[in-house]
Amino acid sequence: MYSKNLLGRSLLEEAIVTENLSKMYGQIWAVKDLNLRVHAGELFGFLGPNGAGKTTTIRMLTTITKPTYGRAFVDGFNVQEKPEMVRKAIGVMQQHLSLDRDLTVRENMELRARIHHLSADERKKRVEELLDYVGLVEYADRTVDELSGGFQRRAMIACSLIHRPKILFLDEPTVGLDAHTRRRMWDLIRRLNADGVTIFLTTHYIEEAEALCQRVGIIHKGQLIAIGSPIELRGKIGLFTVVMVTEGGKFAYKYFHDRAEASKYVQKLSNSNSIKSVVIRDSNLEDVFIELTGGEVIGE
């Protein structure tokens, strides 16, 4: 029944499709009427402030949380009807440390390989390959407890890749990493995507979404409030931003679709003496995010 969507893409070309996917916890909607499509091969970013519903969405897509209502298809399979098919296709790196702390890195990887039915030879080969890939060869035989946070995250991503998943879910993969390690993680994510892995990544670091993602969805209070490429999203509020600093030292922003308009506005401002300084610059994803989640635009 789900052979084609509006764009004429077959479901197989869509790595993830959700239809009014919703989850209620107690009195609150953690996720409400989420309609989303992530194309196969895409690096998709899911951006939202704390408590927006990013993790809840991932948990529903990865078959461990049941939606209150709505449906989701991952790799063409309904997550509730064919969870075992979905599980074969996905790799997941959870937001919080999800390795067995009493086991070594290598043992954790081997366990993952076993529960994903890799043969003994394949297991061995894949573990060594991935240890090298994420730069953990020297730490392979330490228990997870003994590793620093950054190395734990590298071990987590290695574990999530062991069975060569088609679709990879990364829940805030770079949280708590230093600048160097973050860049390394970004490189790794790009490399995986270039190898053909579809990536669904959540973050609340805007520069991360901007640096990595081909398309970004912004979720706020459980609802998808914007979706598109970074440039499309910037286009939504206006590609140019006028930043004004008032007498009181407060910042104010106004967005324009072309530079001429922005300049005209600035000219007008120069007569006003309540403005101390003013600049025109390109809008960025952060502007979009603040504007859309700030409350003025979407109400509430």
Binding site: T62, I64, R87
Partner: peptide, 22 residues
């Protein structure tokens, strides 16, 4: 004793739930 800790406090029990095993 390990199982309830793994399930409640560490997320490593979730990993079993996300794997293709019954």
């Amino acid at each position: 004793s390990k199982l309830h800790v793994d399930r409640l406090f560490y997320k490593c029990f979730d990993e079993l739930l996300m794997a293709p095993i019954g």
